[in-house]
Amino acid sequence: MRFKDKVVIITGGGSGIGLAAARKFIDHGANVLITGRRKAQLDSVTAGSSNLQGLVADSSDPEAATRTVAAAMDYWGRIDIVVNNAGSGVIQPLVETNAKSISDIFAVNVAGPTLLASAAIPQLAKTGGSIVNLSSTYGSKAAADLSLYAASKAALEHLTRCWALELAPKGIRVNAVASGPVETEFLRERMGLSDKEITAVKEQERRAIPLGRRGVPNDVARWILNLADPEANWITGQIIAIDGGLVIT
């Protein structure tokens, strides 16, 4: 019960890594607010749980941050941990890049986490809380046709370091998990790939990962909890790669 009575916000928490982390936090005594764009999905995963609440919110919406913080405060009156998990991706050659594709991915992967972190600072300062950002192997590893996604995650990693310096005097820790490929619906729902494309990408990734498999949500979720753990109180400004060794290839 290492998170007993703590209050956690997880964006994009209706499925995948976000939902796995939410369930682990609850197992350890926390109250969790998850956000997502699909009301039916949120209603389904929160049904029957007083410790898990859902809020329909799109991380690309500038108004979502203040609504999310207000909802957590209305439910439980405090905020201890913010997990910026919601993310967007795109496989797009440079020659096809346009202003909208740039704006769309940075709105979710950079602006959304920044606005939520900013909105939560007053409450996190009261509780000596922490922020965990979800990055990617490609925040530090170059890849063809992933320049927009990779650049947005690189930006999030540097934001993590800068926020850690800025917020340390307030007693707020900031870290990030750089996840490798995980078995979720990300490739279909967020990258818009076809079944054939998904199969090809997964096979390519399996061959590239030294440990020989794609991850599962709990592989990453447990490290979100480890970084958020109050006993990890001398860790800040760090990017932890959880990717089966992909980043070193």
Score class of each variant (00 low, 15 high):
92 Q>T: 15
229 D>N: 03
26 I>W: 05
117 A>E: 00
143 A>I: 10
71 A>D: 09
166 E>R: 00
147 S>P: 15
24 K>W: 10
218 N>D: 14
248 I>G: 09
149 Y>V: 12
162 C>S: 13
13 G>K: 05
108 V>M: 06
182 V>M: 01
104 D>W: 09
97 T>M: 11
248 I>P: 08
73 M>P: 07
166 E>H: 03
231 E>H: 06
81 I>G: 07
104 D>A: 12
220 V>G: 08
109 N>M: 05
98 N>K: 09
168 A>R: 14
19 L>I: 03
109 N>E: 01
99 A>G: 13
193 L>S: 08
244 G>R: 02
223 W>M: 11
47 A>K: 08
245 G>Q: 10
44 S>K: 14
117 A>H: 06
227 L>P: 06
227 L>D: 05
118 S>H: 14
26 I>R: 05
39 K>T: 11
78 R>Q: 06
52 L>K: 09
222 R>Q: 15
16 G>F: 01
202 K>V: 11
2 R>A: 14
246 L>K: 08
113 P>G: 03
46 T>K: 08
59 S>G: 14
78 R>C: 01
204 Q>D: 13
40 A>Y: 06
59 S>L: 12
100 K>E: 10
109 N>C: 08
121 I>F: 12
243 D>A: 06
97 T>L: 05
17 I>G: 05
125 A>L: 07
179 S>L: 02
9 I>Q: 00
218 N>R: 13
21 A>M: 09
133 N>K: 13
43 D>P: 03
47 A>L: 10
86 A>V: 08
165 L>Q: 15
200 A>N: 07
163 W>T: 03
70 A>H: 08
174 V>P: 00
242 I>M: 01
218 N>T: 13
52 L>Q: 04
144 A>V: 13
18 G>V: 03
231 E>P: 06
164 A>Y: 04
204 Q>S: 15
154 A>S: 11
46 T>A: 02
11 T>P: 11
237 G>R: 10
103 S>K: 14
71 A>P: 05
40 A>R: 07
147 S>W: 11
213 R>G: 11
220 V>T: 00
156 L>Q: 11
78 R>I: 04
110 V>G: 08
151 A>C: 15
48 G>F: 09
56 V>G: 03
165 L>M: 15
122 P>F: 14
110 V>Y: 09
232 A>T: 11
235 I>P: 01
99 A>P: 13
18 G>S: 01
49 S>M: 12
116 L>Y: 07
134 L>D: 11
175 N>T: 02
177 V>R: 02
217 P>H: 04
129 G>N: 03
145 D>A: 15
249 T>R: 08
112 G>N: 12
54 G>R: 02
94 L>T: 11
221 A>R: 00
210 P>K: 04
72 A>E: 00
90 V>I: 12
50 S>N: 12
155 A>N: 11
178 A>G: 06
169 P>Y: 00
219 D>Y: 07
82 V>G: 00
92 Q>P: 13
24 K>H: 14
28 H>P: 12
174 V>C: 00
234 W>Y: 14
249 T>L: 05
206 R>N: 02
238 Q>C: 12
185 E>D: 12
184 T>V: 03
187 L>E: 03
59 S>T: 15
173 R>Y: 05
249 T>S: 09
90 V>A: 08
176 A>K: 07
43 D>A: 07
101 S>G: 13
209 I>P: 02
214 R>W: 09
9 I>D: 04
212 G>W: 05
108 V>S: 04
31 N>R: 11
74 D>A: 06
4 K>I: 15
43 D>Y: 08
117 A>I: 04
102 I>A: 02
